[in-house]
Design a protein around this nucleic acid. Structure first.
Lengths: 356, 356
DNA sequence: CTAGTCCATGTTGACGTCAACATCCTGACC
DNA sequence: GGTCAGGATGTTGACGTCAACATGGACTAG
């Protein structure tokens, strides 16, 4: 009989026996090679269907040295950015016939990263996408296996790795300029954690934009990306006479909105608020949040394209690719109270700038 | 020389040559087997380090028939639930020495599911976790490869598969009873899409809870889980005299809160709102949202435990495991206006129930 | 009619690892 | 000193696939 031993997976040999051909012919049919006569091909396909044949990817990988799999190393899926980027990575990798293996790092510590890298060495991946800030990578004593293409997202290591990132600086600049353009004297910044590269970049761009416009530079409030930390910072902001706040992400902006509402400061009438990310919920915040849209999907696509290119060209290119942002105007920004009042009293007078 | 050919990965043979032992001894050291003398072991380990040896997982998998990888099939990562469950799956799988391969389904259509299942057949996975509603699975004409352990999350197919799910019914009941306990006459429901199993379960439990309490059954408002749809529904709710709303998820509750605020209905003073999920941001909503906490991490852990158990026992068990929920009381629920007024005017009088 | 060409199909061996079996060495005990 | 036990180490082959080469039949051209 041609029935394979029970409990064993169907192999090419089983199919070949049933179809009455050699395993090589089965291989050719399986890989869609052209030099097989139609009648033979049909026989083989029939046999495959009958037996429920599935190519053994382990044997294939062993033979070819390629797993058709990309590893993604990240700390947590529980941030909007990581999740949406991963989604895009998985989708565009699938389109190229690659699978995605997720390698979580238990804790954002040196040990955690080392552990992930050690596991990585044994994992069946052809390339690696790092979804994390590279200074943690530097702290890791284990280096990446050589010869494995790597692309880093969300980092500043363009001189050593291939990096894909959102254009944090341009986005932040757009946010500040939008507020200044509305007539605000200056813009307060609610920054992310000081250890975060994205946070640093946004903060620096905010500072530079104010400097370039010759505006006063208020003290920085700092959160940890969470809505709760935004709320804490918001209570402090509410005690000041700030008229415009640029929050480094939407979640902190959400907390900020709540703190301002509780303090009786109306948004955008008394205070304008702008966020960063454009999370799906931002449109439903109270009020709907003006924010800087990040194209995470594009970041993910470019990460995949990057590692595939490195694989194809056998190169270890480096350099930074910046994905542009887009300002999404909703209802949380408006001219400052004084400017609005001035505009109301004398509509002809330009309200480019006002002093308190 | 012992240097391996450039471009080739280091194999056991290379290590064996450098250490002056057989490949089998290298294998033994690599797998931590005890019957190797210390001096030999040291030599081998040194050689491994020198050459940067990493076991070839393809060869290992080919030999053992096990990939130490679990496939997770899902439509999108862009829902809180999927993302957090996947995070937990990845973490607990890693703890057991398993990697996670993400298999995205392009579209929630029959074709999309079929495509994913076809790919699955060739993928290097030992087991599968399905993060999707099973009615789509039924529509798929391709069946799961036999002999592969499967666990389904978020579904109702306990009679055919091993299912892990949140206890939707108990959570919904708790939400309704919380509101009734505060003195509301009845509770309006803002349901999820009618095609969703989770949505159906929550809606049914809400209905049953009201029936059990002998309360009137208001018409159902329906959204699509998004904050925007919650806002639309909220505008409709605001035109009614409803005093309590149970939203089927937090995002819709967020939109609902905005619609109520815009309509001048104060939460919780005029209208109480309760959500479902307990997303991290819920604490920063305006007001902070009372909601039903889902333990996605536990769902993920049990999914992994389930497939591992099936692998170990070589069984294809089925049945449903329910993960309990927890009501988180924040600031969006309160007694209804009439009851509050009555309580204020006559504190001694019990306010169990009030009529409009 | 024969030499030559092209193409379908078959045969062989190698990818890297590890289980099973084979061998060899050390040391204990009579 | 000889025998034997037991542990360390080596040898062989198989897992499933596919590239490279081998074979052989059909058809063309001179």
């Amino acid at each position: 009989m041609t029935a394979p031993a029970p409990g064993r997976r169907v192999s090419m040999a089983d199919v070949a026996r049933l179809a009455g051909v050699s395993t090589q012919t089965v291989s050719r049919v399986s890989n869609g090679q052209p030099n097989v006569v139609d009648s033979t091909r049909r026989q083989v396909l029939d046999a495959m269907r009958t037996l429920g044949y599935r190519p053994n990817s382990a044997a294939r990988a062993l033979r070819s040295g390629r797993f058709r799999t990309i590893g993604v190393i990240l700390f947590t899926l529980s941030t909007t950015g990581n999740m949406r980027t991963l989604d895009a990575i998985a989708t565009s990798a699938a389109a190229e016939g690659y699978a995605i293996t997720v390698i979580p790092v238990e804790a954002p510590t040196q040990d955690g990263v080392n552990g992930a890298f050690t596991r990585l060495g044994e994992l069946a991946v052809d390339a690696v996408i790092l979804l994390m800030e590279v200074h943690l990578l530097d702290a890791a004593s284990v280096s990446l296996p050589t010869g494995v293409p790597v692309v880093v997202a969300d980092s500043d290591a363009g001189d050593r790795y291939s990096v894909v990132d959102t254009d944090q600086a341009a986005g932040s600049r757009a946010a500040v300029q939008h507020l200044l353009g509305l007539g605000h004297d200056t813009v307060v910044h609610l920054a992310g954690p000081s250890g975060s590269f994205a946070s640093q970049r946004r903060e620096q761009a905010w500072r530079q934009a104010l400097l370039d416009a010759g505006r006063p530079l208020p003290a920085v409030h700092r959160g940890d990306w969470s809505a709760t930390s935004g709320y804490e910072a918001g209570r402090a902001v509410a005690r000041t006479d700030a008229t415009a706040v640029f929050a480094a992400n939407d979640q902190m902006a959400l907390g900020l909105l709540r703190a301002l509402a509780e303090a009786g400061r109306r948004v955008p009438h008394d205070v304008s608020v702008i966020g960063f990310d454009d999370v799906p919920d931002a449109v439903a915040y109270l009020p709907p949040l003006t924010t800087v849209h990040q194209d995470f999907a594009e970041v993910g696509r470019r990460c995949v394209a990057g590692v595939l290119r490195q694989m194809a060209e056998h190169s270890a290119e480096h350099g930074t690719t910046l994905v542009p942002t887009r300002l999404v105007e909703r209802a949380s920004t408006a001219p400052p109270p004084a400017a609005a009042a001035a505009a109301a009293s004398a509509q002809s007078q330009p309200t480019r700038r006002n002093t308190r």
